[in-house]
Design a protein around this nucleic acid. Structure first.
Lengths: 202, 202
DNA sequence: GTCTATACATCGATAGAC
DNA sequence: GTCTATCGATGTATAGAC
């Protein structure tokens, strides 16, 4: 494996776990199997290395998620498919989400820019979920509601439990957020809750 | 104001914003209007100071939240009252939540212990929300569902958007997570969504 | 490209005067 | 209790040989 690649992998691991301030260049070098000097040879400084990792993490998560979005079905199926894929992507990346959300506070502008870039790269103008919800309301697929609040709810239900998984697993003993069956179960629970909440009156 | 108090206030501010690793004893001393030596005189080390703050933050949030829980009404009102009070407490503490969730990963056992202590102090055995949901299901107030998943959803919808407020406000321009009207609106949106999702079939 | 050795800054913590 | 001054450890970054 190329040295640069080894560094990237090591840096990701350390940054995700300890954050920028807690990470040590020495530890990254150790885990990459090189020394500090070489680390600085490839990436001028800790700042440069961090920014690179930070950007990569966001882009990768966004790419995974946006690639699964499809407009081609009715809202109920769209909702379920989106949430299921969302959870499948987020669940194994609990550390990434936690890390990004913590660090993003200090780099708000960059963060939002990376999001916008991802949207554009996938051909979306603006938030694709908002768009789909708005259309569903217009076409009477669901009851009128506030699209933004609905998106906030979907994001919260999907992201939060997995982001806080290590803690949640200790509060609700017996849960295993890495178990595939649990992930699928949770996806259908979220979908059902939302669908019941927004489906048109009969 | 007493010196110790000034230190606590300053330390909270700094730790919330920058985390344990990012915080500097010098900055805490500066903001408390004293010097480093005196800071170490009151709290032996950074570790000791941090643990104290970490514990206080958790206990205070939990106390505020648990104090508002009342079992005395039907589930729909219980739900709305709880979420409304929950948001009112969480919204002005976005930094605390973000900080606690970030740091709790390294101190999982302490964190869960503090939670348990808070539950007990308020006379709850186990998670009070789980208990209320279970009762509601038994008594036919709501449709049968998985209480744990429902709690995860409630927590996610409530905590996540506010925890990520600075970012969300940039993604969904125009939102103001500190605005009282928005908070109340969001509380009723969450309640409505959940209630529609779990209310018994007519 | 990769290493050893080291410079330079900063941080947490302490000694000691008042 | 509060200060100034400073120590010792550690972190980022670089110089220079290979």
């Amino acid at each position: 494996m190329k040295t640069e690649e080894k560094i990237i992998i090591a840096a990701r691991r350390i940054f995700r776990e300890k954050g920028k301030d807690g990470a040590r260049m020495q530890e990254i070098a150790d885990q990459a199997g090189i020394n500090k000097a070489l680390l600085h040879y490839y990436f001028r400084s800790k700042d440069v290395l961090f920014d690179k990792i930070f950007k990569q993490e966001i882009q990768e998560v966004m790419h995974q998620i946006l690639a699964t979005i499809s407009d081609q079905t009715d809202f109920r199926n769209f909702l379920y498919a989106f949430i299921r894929e969302y959870l499948r992507n987020i669940a194994p990346r609990r550390n990434v989400i936690r890390f990004v959300l913590w660090e993003a506070d200090k780099k708000k502008d960059q963060f939002v820019n990376y999001l916008s870039e991802s949207f554009q790269e996938h051909g979306f103008s603006g938030n694709p979920i908002i768009g789909r919800i708005t259309r569903a309301i217009e076409e009477g697929e669901i009851r009128p509601c506030d699209p933004v609040n609905l998106v906030l709810s979907i994001l919260g239900m999907s992201i939060f439990p997995f982001m806080a998984a290590p803690i949640m697993e200790r509060i609700f003993t017996g849960l295993d957020f890495t178990d595939q069956a649990f992930i699928e179960h949770r996806a259908s629970e979220i979908s059902a809750l939302i669908w019941n909440g927004v489906k048109p009156e009969v």
